[in-house]
Write a protein that binds this DNA or RNA. Structure first.
Lengths: 182, 182
DNA sequence: CTATTTTATCGACATTCCGTCAATAAAACA
DNA sequence: TGTTTTATTGACGGAATGTCGATAAAATAG
């Protein structure tokens, strides 16, 4: 049996308040570089020193927020990877729909290095899974995973930041056209 | 005849020193977010207040540096666009070679919004020029300029930040494979 | 060439943010 | 309930910011 060491409810509440403060501030500010510990703790109605008990700095807090979002995103993506490739378009749209749902947050976090790395890794993992599923009918002149991951990241960054008027369906179709050899 | 209002040589020298200070600091720091006006003016051996006479803030200074680099880059790219498409590969390699030359600076500046916009516009302009040159044999299922620009930006960002061990030749070939329908 | 005007640079000030104390308050536990 | 543990807090020193008036250097007029 695991002896789960109980966490002080004050800590849990403080961390929740700090994260919520970041969410509301980002929704107003639109710019991650304008965040200060001062603003965050004011919004969370906590002392500034309390922040440093839970996080090393603002980047550390953002890192953890990113981690949690990716846990959730991975949980939604992983089952999709098990579906056969006939549904590739639906898979892609479902994935993009999730991003669209969090587009404002993504538009901010996509500037964060850890976020870019996590998202790229998820994309590469997904592409690799598809290639594995396809088996032997791989095209001979293969584009490397790095390149595909980087280009997909670029498209998603553009979409959430400057092209959010386009639907998931449109972006999915454009991506399909780009990568499909015909 | 234009009456060029002469600039105070002190101003010219100060701006030059401040820009050079940024270059040397970025070459050491590797991180644009760690720049401070303090550090820049210390390195430039100028008073901190002098900085604010010439630039609004650090972003303003970076904006102007970006602008100058793109003036230079555009001058190199524009002639290439006039060459017929048989030399597309050489054009792409020449373009990437220029980026490779400034890769350390690019790796830093590519985080800057103005830089991304400028680079994307240049890429889109280049792609459009090629499409125009090709005339009527355009593929029916065209990928939008926005999408191609965004994916190329993503690839270049990855290259200068995480994949600089790869040669211009390699990246050019991968890009060609990605966008060429066969 | 000298005197005057213009303006670039500088030292200093108030403000804000940062990171870290010891003191206090709240939760966990015996 | 009384004791131990730990989360929260106010306060302090240091650093960066943006903006003064004072000074020094360049441009200009006589």
């Amino acid at each position: 049996m695991f002896t789960m060491k109980k966490e002080d409810p004050r800590s849990i509440r403080s961390r929740r308040m700090l994260k919520e403060a970041v969410f509301t501030l980002l929704a107003e500010n639109e710019d991650v570089s304008q965040l200060t510990v001062q603003k965050i703790t004011n919004r969370a109605e906590l002392n500034r020193a309390t922040f440093y008990l839970h996080y090393e700095d603002i980047n550390d807090l953002l890192r953890q927020i990113v981690h949690e979002i990716f846990d959730e995103l991975s949980k939604k993506v992983d089952p999709l990877l098990k579906i056969p490739r006939s549904n590739e378009h639906e898979q892609l749209v479902a994935f993009l729909d999730y991003i669209y749902e969090y587009r404002k947050l993504f538009a901010v976090l996509v500037e964060h290095k850890g976020f870019k790395t996590s998202l790229t890794n998820l994309l590469k993992k997904t592409i690799q899974a598809r290639r594995d599923a396809r088996g032997e009918d791989l095209p001979p002149n293969l584009v490397s995973l790095d390149i595909i991951g980087a280009s997909l990241l670029g498209i998603i960054m553009w979409w959430v930041k400057d092209g959010i008027q386009f639907s998931s369906e449109y972006v999915a179709e454009q991506i399909a056209r780009l990568y499909k050899k015909e």
